[in-house]
Amino acid sequence: MTPAPVRWSGRDWVPGERLSGRTTAPEFPADAPVVGVLALQGDVLEHLRALARCGARPVRVRRVADLEHVDGLIVPGGESTTIGKLLVRAELLEPLRERITGGLPTFGTCAGMILLSRELDQEAPQPLLGVLGVRTRRNAFGRQVDSFDTSLAIAGVAGEPMDVSFIRAPWVEEVLDGDVEVLASVDGKPVVVRQGHVLATAFHPEVTGDDRLHQRFVDDLR
C-alpha cells in the first residue's frame, strides 16, 4: 500500500502554512506511520507539524478517499459544532465512525474530545462520532477570558508535568463505560481519557510544542 503523497506547497497548500511559497517537503522514512488529521476546520497545521516532529507522515483528511491509507487519526481543536456539521455535509461522519470502531487508533484534542464523545451535557443536538464512552461538557471552564495555561501531570507521561493550554475547553462530566481510563483531572473533572485505542484531551498539546502525547501516539502505531 503506497501512502498518498503529501505536498507542502502549491495548490495543496494548507491554511496557515508559510506564505513565502518556498516550503520544502520534509523527508520521512519509508516505514513512517501515516497519520491523518481531520482537516475540515481548526488547528490542523499545528497537528501536522507535531506529527512530523514525531516522525509520522501526516496527511489531511477531508474526503472519504483520504482515509484509505491512514494508520491513525487525529481530530484537531477547532469549533466542534462547525466540524460536526461539515462531517455530515462531506458524508464523512459514518465512514469515520466505522473506521474508528473498527480499531483505527484515534486521538482527539479539545473539539476533538467533544466530537469523539458519545454524549454531551447540553440540550442542543450536534453531530458526534460517539466512539468514546463519556459525557462531555462543552466550554466547561467558561468563556475565553477564563482560558488558561498550566502544567499537568498525566498518567503514563514520564518526566516533568506537561505544559498545556486550555482554550474554551471541555471536561468529562461523566464516564459512561467501565473500561474508560482517566489519565488526568482538573478540579476533579477528567481532562485526559483513554478507551482502548481512542485517546482524548481537553487541552491542546499541539499548540505548546510539548510533543510527548503525540510521540506516544505515533510510537504505538509502529
Binding site: P15, V145, D149
Partner: peptide
C-alpha cells in the same frame, strides 16, 4: 498554578478558528 490572558491562549483561540 493557572495563568489566564496569556499570549498563548489569546493567539490559541484564533488558531482554533482557522479554516472557518
Amino acid at each position: 498554578e493557572t495563568r489566564t490572558g496569556t499570549t498563548r491562549v489569546k493567539r490559541g483561540l484564533a488558531d482554533m478558528l482557522k479554516g472557518g
